[in-house]
Design a protein around this nucleic acid. Structure first.
Lengths: 319, 319
DNA sequence: TTGAAAGCGCTAACAG
DNA sequence: CTGTTAGCGCTTTCAA
């Protein structure tokens, strides 16, 4: 910057202002300096600016990473969410610092101006952990009565209601829910599901499954059969669970959807390509990511921010 | 740091050294100062350190992002790769700056100490673009004769050979390859496939498909049928393509694997859960990520680094 | 509208 | 083994 100043015959600070599009500098000199900067390939020293400004211009995105052979890593919070976040933060001049829960102690994470937490964790333990850092934080997940964080998430409750409505409308009377109610988002799906069914005098069977894998879905249905439970519909908390369930149903000689209706969650491309094509609940991740980013930025700027729930849609296919 | 120095009755630099585990300081004072730092919740100012050290301690990871409704964003380079990268960089004290190709002009990206490029792009245009930045760079993809970058990738050529061997061993004589040979990794799969088959006097049919979606796979097989091509085996460059192909085959009244054998690529959980369970080529992404990270770090440290090819394995399931 | 001075928090070099 | 000095590159006062 000092070099540019010399070249342009002005002072360092004028260069700084010119490059920052400050109104304190003539349009003419601004142009001249910017052209010079381009010509000489000048690059702003981000560290120096950040040191001076006492901000890192960085938002740490913390993903829940449970590496496991049977589960695509970070599977439930897919990349589209990251895509939306990245797009929005970058265009605001912020960087996306990608981290996992383990790396939270990292100096760079601590220096972040804000935090986006993808996944609350069981019992919201992740939320509690990061809350202590005292940084502006926005969480992707389910809104909770207990805590008062800014949360962006899909309308999990309504998803549950929609699936219940669907099952009722096609005459199903013995529904099963497969998922993990310790997971806040799934808990809300369950609530919606249960409440809507209760209005029609129906109480679904809750089948708790911690893993969201195909195998887990297979086992779930097998256990149902082993216990001689009578059921005619399944709401599974992931497409993989749903596909596993269908496989087990077929093995048992049951027909989907004639004998049992199945609805999955997330509307993955693979679910759509399943035979039979899977009915599933779709959430808008890209938009969720954009909103998460906007809200941390607002928080960082000290603006008022509120939680937001995004609509979901039940995509009815063949199951 | 100045405050800590005052508290400990030493100078700033001693604190700096103590916190950095420098051997220049007594074990006793190091302990004392570190305890003090913990107690008072001291956080290193990363910007100041980076400014002084003239390094950002950041590696930019550039993902190829082509948002499209029918394709999970960033699909071909899944998160496990990012997981491996993140794990390795973080434990070396580096941050992962996540960006897309569009954001490459970003000041923070330019300030990175190194670059990891996920995906070479068609005709390696992405590689050429980032090469101009003059940063230490490592690329995930296929090694290329033309360029001389450090590349980490799966043994795509051998994958092609394996699939050809498999087809030959079960008596297939009319194989089809579905993929995009402009994509370097896929080109190598094709080469291996073609070469191995050529040794047995067989020339596979190349069916070019730009999209790696289910629909694309369906169309591919339909076009085959429409042209009355005789074929008995398909090597598809993604599980989704393979699943689409199988769906179309079934619609045409053909049986998989009796009439046609199909092998996909990537061994996704969804492929494994497909009915029938999909045979597919598996690559080790997590390890690939770790290697990518290690190699940029070595490059940054001025150490000699060479490209590396990771073995793949053909997982034979029901198709 | 432009500039001079000061200092953000840290560490490498050198001196003790 | 510890300390002093200096300066990384930038931008916010304050003054012209």
């Amino acid at each position: 910057m000092a070099d540019l100043a010399k070249l342009a015959g002005v002072s360092k600070i004028t260069v700084s202002r010119a490059l920052g599009d400050s109104p304190l500098v003539t349009a003419e000199t601004r142009e001249r300096i910017q052209a010079l900067a381009r010509k000489h390939g000048y690059k702003l020293n981000v560290s120096a600016r950040n040191l001076r400004l006492r901000r890192s211009h960085t938002v740490a995105v913390i993903v829940e990473m449970k590496p496991s052979s049977s589960r695509t890593m970070w599977d439930p919070y897919p990349l589209s969410l990251l895509g939306g976040i990245s797009q929005e933060l970058t265009s605001a001049g912020y960087s996306v610092l990608l981290t996992t829960r383990h790396d939270a102690a990292n100096a760079a994470v601590q220096a972040a101006d804000g935090l986006i937490l993808l996944g609350q964790g069981e019992h919201e333990d992740a939320v509690k952990l990061y809350d202590r850092m005292g940084l502006p934080m926005v969480v992707w997940g389910a809104e909770s009565a207990r805590d008062n964080h800014i949360v962006v998430g899909s309308d999990n409750r309504h998803s549950g209601v929609s699936v219940a409505e669907r099952f009722l409308s096609i005459g199903r009377r013995h529904p099963v829910f497969i998922g993990n109610s310790d997971h806040p988002e799934m808990a809300q799906r369950l609530h919606g599901f249960v409440d809507e069914l209760a209005g029609h005098g129906i109480k679904p069977l809750l089948l708790r499954r911690v893993d969201w894998t195909l195998e887990s879905g297979v086992e779930a249905v097998r256990s149902l059969a082993a216990r001689k439970v009578h059921f005619d519909s399944i709401f599974a908390c992931s497409d993989l669970l749903a596909m596993g369930a269908i496989r087990a149903l077929v093995e048992l000689g049951l027909s989907v959807p004639n004998d049992v209706s199945v609805v999955g969650y997330d509307d993955t491309p693979h679910g759509a390509s399943f035979l039979p094509p899977l009915s599933s609940v779709r959430q808008n991740w890209q938009e969720g990511g954009v909103l998460l980013a906007r809200k941390v930025l607002a928080l960082i700027d000290g603006l008022p921010v509120s939680s937001q729930v995004l609509p979901t849609s039940l995509v009815v296919r063949a199951t």
